[in-house]
């Protein structure tokens, strides 16, 4: 396999840069679709996760932050939650760099890790800035935990883990399903796309070079 220079200085090439708008719109469209189909989960991370997987942690982080800023134009509450997108994107991106998403064991471990990261970072933002509230339906779970006498941090993190786990996993699985349908000739041009190219083609490429 040929060596590519990867890292924050090399990741923002033009092809990856133009993936950012696609990622942001994908998250928005995913969210709309999940409301149209009346799903009980919100597919609002799919763009960020997909871009972090194929274009690296930093491009993914830019996608996540921009997505929150765009939402923030109508709902300023979502601007501080850009921190959550940043953490999720960085975790996903580095796990992708370490080839965690290529086998089933890795996918399970990566899913759990990303879930913990996003639940904790979301709790940090919501407890420090909003007193443990997010302005959505999950606040009732937090309220229930608090009513049983739990501390605010434990309540918010448990709520996030309960409501976020399925969400994170489904977003991740959908992103992986979509990535496996992306043509290899596009993936090969991206800095982190190599791991998602079918093995047969990778061997062919290695034998040619």
């Amino acid at each position: 396999m040929r060596k590519r220079k990867i890292g924050i200085r090399y990741d923002f090439n033009l092809l990856a840069l133009l993936l950012i708008p696609i990622g942001v719109s994908l998250s928005v469209v995913g969210y709309q679709l999940s409301t149209v189909l009346k799903l009980p989960i919100f597919i609002d991370l799919i763009g960020t996760v997909m871009v972090s997987m194929i274009a690296g942690p930093w491009v993914g982080a830019a996608t996540g932050i921009l997505g929150n800023l765009v939402n923030g134009m109508l709902n300023p509450i979502s601007i501080p939650f850009a921190f959550v997108s940043l953490c999720t994107a960085l975790a996903t991106g580095y796990l992708s760099r370490w080839k965690m998403y290529t086998n089933i064991v890795g996918i399970v471990i990566a899913g759990l890790l990303v879930d913990v990261v996003s639940a904790t970072s979301s709790a940090v933002v919501s407890v420090l800035l909003f007193g443990g509230v997010t302005g959505t339906g999950t606040d009732f779970i937090t309220a229930a935990f608090l009513a049983t006498g739990q501390q605010i941090w434990t309540s918010v993190i448990s709520t996030n883990l309960i409501s976020g786990t399925i969400n994170t996993i489904i977003n991740m699985v959908l992103a992986l399903l979509i990535i496996h349908n992306i043509p290899p000739r596009f993936l090969v041009k991206l800095n982190y796309g190599w791991n998602y190219i079918p093995k047969k083609l990778r061997r062919l490429e290695e034998s040619l070079s």
């Binding site: 994908l26 997909m50 349908n181």
Partner: peptide
């Protein structure tokens, strides 16, 4: 749930082609 991928998949792939 099953209808999600056939809906979103073509959107992504078309955008990537355009990209």
């Amino acid at each position: 749930m099953k209808s999600f991928v056939p809906m979103l998949g073509p959107v992504v792939l078309t955008s990537i082609e355009q990209n």
